[in-house]
Design a protein around this nucleic acid. Structure first.
Lengths: 105, 105
DNA sequence: GTCGTTGTTCGATGGTTGTCGTAGTTCGAT
DNA sequence: ATCGAACTACGACAACCATCGAACAACGAC
């Protein structure tokens, strides 16, 4: 089973745990992906991320971010467009995302 | 070498990397230690932390937090008093600490 | 000096995870 | 219906890490 059209379950806002969020953001590749999603209104498909890993590794990182509650996906055709759950994160951990994104590269 | 009196080197403010900070905070034990240090002016010695791990494990966590730039230590007799580098963290990543500490336990 | 307290270091171990290649599935286009 | 594009799943492997026990070092107190 499971390909592009699969519908995922996302954690509710009150199911998001800070440990999972921090662990997800701690990886350099995933942090870079979040930076690319940071601009408001940004949606990036799986193949649209500028990262130096293979597709299977990228899928793994997307799942980690999704299960941590950091991103959401919108299905459109064969593509899945990912975006930041900024409202939820700002509500739960006010300032966290801002502080992380303020870090100099 | 190396016992209680050892003087450590701490990363300068501009050497603190966000990936290391996030990785250090992602561990439940270390996050709990940071919460215990969060009250302004708080200093906690190695044996003063309320954690469910052995001393050697606690030393490991303290080193991780220290090398990430999250805590500093003040030597006094045989005890080493640890405190948060709140000023440095707030300057580098404004809002991060606040957001992390806002998470419900 | 001797002892207890405080904290570190050194293996060892088991679990987690980041990475990849390969194979498979769904969809749209030709 | 056949092909390619987009993405996922599975198995494998290496690297990292949290944890512990045991031994060690420095200091203060008696």
């Amino acid at each position: 089973m499971a390909a592009t059209t699969q519908q995922y379950t996302y954690p509710d806002r009150d199911e998001i745990r800070i440990e999972a969020v921090l662990a997800a953001l701690a990886d350099p590749v995933r942090l870079d992906m979040v930076r690319q999603l940071a601009e408001p209104g940004t949606e990036i498909s799986c193949s649209g991320f500028a990262v130096a890993v293979t597709k299977s590794t990228l899928t793994h990182h997307l799942r980690t971010l999704r299960e941590a509650g950091i991103i959401m996906g919108r299905q459109q055709g064969t593509a899945r467009y990912n975006s930041l759950r900024r409202n939820d994160l700002d509500e739960l951990f006010p300032g966290l995302l801002q502080g992380v994104l303020a870090a100099r590269r």
